[in-house]
């Protein structure tokens, strides 16, 4: 378990990690995230490429050893990546809990 404290994940990174719970190639990630977010999040290919590179460097995703015939590179989430998602979900739950409680009260 890493003792390094992460900050919040960006929305891009969070959704990319979710998408890669199954092996997917870049375009697949874009479609998946688009569908999951109901069309709200449209990942730009430039942004996505950068995210995939960074996440691979961090060891949160890894390339899938694919067939040599298939040119499209696929990625999949790693154990470290799943851990990062777990921590992020905890953080988001805290935000949601506090947000709902505080913002629900009528304030003048």
């Amino acid at each position: 378990m890493s003792t390094e404290t992460h900050g919040p994940l960006t929305e891009t990174v969070f959704y990319v990690l979710l998408a890669l719970h199954e092996p997917l190639h870049g375009y697949g990630v874009m479609q998946y995230v688009g569908e999951l977010s109901g069309g709200r999040v449209t990942l730009g290919p430039g942004t996505l490429y950068g995210a995939l590179t960074s996440l691979a460097e961090k060891g949160w995703i890894e390339p899938v050893a694919g067939d040599t015939g298939d040119r499209k590179k696929e990625y999949v989430i790693t154990h470290a990546g799943r851990e990062a998602v777990r921590l992020e979900l905890e953080r988001l739950e805290e935000l949601l809990r506090n947000g709902r409680r505080v913002a629900k009260e009528e304030r003048r």
Partner: peptide, 8 residues
């Protein structure tokens, strides 16, 4: 759009 967030 190539870039979908501020950072990129």
């Amino acid at each position: 759009e190539l870039y979908s967030d501020l950072d990129s």
